[in-house]
Design a protein around this nucleic acid. Structure first.
Length: 164
DNA sequence: GCCAACGTTGGC
DNA sequence: GCCAACGTTGGC
């Protein structure tokens, strides 16, 4: 941002970290599917990012949470931006919300496609040990947000740490 | 499995 | 609008 470069209408991509419990949806699973709807987010702050801020071509760190060790496993790319999460509708869904309707959807999702595996997972501990990452949202005490903004510097630092 | 931290709900 | 109760997240 802030330079005079032209990139097709947008000054730059933004960077994000998506959390997933691998027992629910792993990075392997994304690579298999190649394209995934990032549905089921039921937190308003994360919803706002999905609805308002996450754009096509934005880059994503895919983080496995609630496993030993928790770690960033790979990257993904946003291929469709915020649209209503239809999995909130209908009782056969894994995460229904009867308050959300077609006319007034509460929840939103994006589509992503698989990027690259890191050559080696970057663990939560490794991130804590890197002073360059000290301001990461993920590392803030008690921060449970499942969709988090990441700076370009943080994104690149983690990719560097993950390439052996 | 424990439990601290957090978000959400709902009574008042 | 307060806040207690509850459910969930997620590291350890």
């Amino acid at each position: 941002m802030g330079d005079t470069g032209y990139d097709g209408g947008r000054m730059s991509v933004n960077y994000w970290l998506f959390k997933s419990e691998p027992t629910a949806y792993s990075y392997d699973h994304l690579v298999e599917d190649y394209i995934a709807e990032w549905d089921g987010v039921r937190n308003f702050q994360a919803r706002n990012f999905l609805r308002d801020n996450i754009k096509v071509n934005d880059l994503v760190l895919f983080y496995h949470s609630n496993v030993k060790p928790s770690a960033v496993i790979g990257t993904a790319i946003v291929i469709r931006e915020g649209y209503p999460d239809h999995t909130a509708w209908g009782t056969d869904s894994d995460h229904p919300d009867p308050r959300s309707t077609v006319e007034n959807p509460i929840w939103y999702m994006v589509d992503i496609k698989a990027g690259q595996y890191l050559n080696k997972p970057v663990t939560l501990q490794a991130m804590h040990n890197n002073p360059a990452l000290k301001d990461m949202v993920l590392l803030r005490k008690g921060m449970r947000l499942s969709i988090q903004p990441v700076t370009q510097e943080q994104f690149e630092a983690i990719c560097d740490m993950g390439s052996v």
